[in-house]
Design a protein around this nucleic acid. Structure first.
Length: 418
RNA sequence: GGGGGGAUACCCGAGUGGCCAAAGGGGACUGACUGUAAAUCAGUUGCGGAAUGCUUCAGAGGUUCGAAUCCUCUUCUCCCCA
């Protein structure tokens, strides 16, 4: 009896930890049952995560789910990553307002290997199995596919908000897109998943997995939903294609700058989902910043440092912080500025037009844009504002000069070619 | 199979022969303000060493002094009927 109680206390602790940052677990007590089963049989749970091998840049939003998986691994469970090489042929329509382009097989293979590399930075590779769903989906023949499709109705699929919206707006939906949830559900059947993890946008697909497992006489998986991290713009979900993301592989200074640009209201969410700081400490920090006891900026610095420590080290977090202080509080130049080498033809001419310089240095798309930047007062040469868009400079005066465009883009000019 | 719509710049969307490089909104960029945050306000947002210059309105042809706008064909797509 005493033993059973300690187990359940342990499980309660695990549940508590796992629940942090989750939106919902379906069914609500399902996870408890699964954990208890695993504890009594000694068999690790299979935690499934399906991935579309599209853009292999892992960012903080995606890391929310991965970090949760990591917790399961720390509790001894097995993570099964399903790389959707077959479903990528479809392209997940979740949350999309348009059909996704299909990927070629070569692209998928290439993305997949990059993916596996990047995943290893968060997951425990020893407790991670990677499977391609082509393994089983590729073996389905037409008759089996038809039988599978008979398990789901059109009305069920059309419940999904994205499909419903597209349909209502008279936007095209291709038949193959309707197959996506079914294919993902079949993945759960194929690997006999115990838990499937996903973002909120995966609700339908993951629940479809439960339905299909039941249809096929399997024990149903527990669905665990994580919130979609809102991106830097504060409105849309973090995603690579929207450009509002912080990549986990990005340099500490870049990460720091991006996190500092978050609006204050987002801090709490980021603390909860992207760090391991205990929640009561988080609420204390947030309260202090709101009541004016602490400058919200300093709380945000703490957030940035915590996140950088996870993906780099606490030392690089500190140095990113001091670099930030140096540039933004003390208004000094960044310590590292990308260098731009003046092309040989300009060196020999001896003069260069400012707009041309900005264009070839990649600071403007064309001389039209460069002209605009100068006119609007966005261009500084060695800290001096340039106002004349027709200015020509002596190349010989440029060596080591610093050109700044807007608040954060700098280059240092080199005129000595090797 | 029959009938009727639609395709416009990064996105949404107005424009039905010249006043159209194309309204408006979103986004992005620059400036002001600030904690170089967010919010707000102002400006910019096809290319262009700038010009009565060049290239755009799904694609290809055509009518016209002149086409995003009219005609023909093609591609994609939505709706209704069967």
């Amino acid at each position: 009896m005493a033993e059973a109680e300690t187990v359940s206390t342990e499980i309660r602790g695990q549940i508590e930890r796992l629940k942090r940052g989750t939106i919902s677990i379906v069914p609500e007590h399902g996870l408890e049952a699964k954990l208890a089963k695993s504890a009594s049989t000694g068999k690790p749970l299979k935690i499934k995560l399906g991935l579309d091998p599209t853009a292999p840049d892992i960012h903080l939003g995606f890391a929310v789910v991965l970090r949760k998986l990591r917790q399961f691994q720390e509790m001894g469970h097995e993570v099964v990553i399903i790389l959707g090489d077959y479903t990528a042929l479809i392209g997940d329509p979740s949350g999309r307002s348009a059909t996704r382009p299909m990927l070629s097989t070569e692209q998928i293979r290439e993305n997949a290997s990059t993916y596996i590399d990047q995943l290893s930075s968060i997951l425990d590779r020893a407790k991670t199995t990677v499977r391609y769903n082509g393994e089983w989906l590729g073996k389905l023949d037409f008759a089996e596919l038809v039988r599978l499709t008979s398990k789901m109705t059109v009305a069920q699929v059309m419940q999904r908000e994205d499909f419903a919206t597209r349909f209502a707006n008279h936007q095209p939906i291709s038949l193959h897109e309707l197959l996506y949830p079914l294919a993902q559900a079949y993945d759960s059947v194929a690997i006999e998943a115990d838990v499937e993890m996903g973002g909120q946008d995966q609700t339908f697909n993951i629940l479809a997995g439960r339905d299909l497992q039941k249809e096929m006489g399997q024990e149903q998986q527990v669905a665990m939903f994580m919130p979609l991290l809102v991106g830097l713009d504060g409105v849309k979900k973090m995603s690579k294609s929207l450009g509002n993301y912080v990549g986990v592989a990005e340099a500490p200074n870049v990460m720091f700058g991006k996190i500092m640009s978050l609006s204050d209201e987002m801090m709490s969410m980021y603390f909860e989902l992207c760090t391991d700081i205990p929640l009561d400490e988080v609420s204390a920090l947030i309260q202090q910043s709101q009541s004016g006891i602490t400058n919200p900026k300093d709380v945000k610095r703490r957030l940035a440092k915590e996140i950088i420590s996870i993906y780099h080290s606490s030392e690089s977090a500190e140095s990113a912080d001091s670099e930030w202080q140096k540039i933004h509080s003390q208004h000094e130049m960044p310590s590292e500025i990308p260098e731009f080498e003046m092309p040989a033809d300009s060196v020999s001419t001896g003069r260069i037009w400012i707009c041309k310089l900005l264009t070839i240095a990649g600071l403007a798309k064309g001389s039209g844009e460069a002209r605009r930047l100068v006119t609007q007062g966005g261009v500084l040469f060695n800290g001096q504002k340039i106002i004349d868009p027709s200015l020509e400079m002596e190349v010989s005066d440029c060596e080591g000069s610093i050109v700044q465009v807007g608040p954060k883009r700098y280059i240092k000019i080199r005129t000595t070619s090797a």
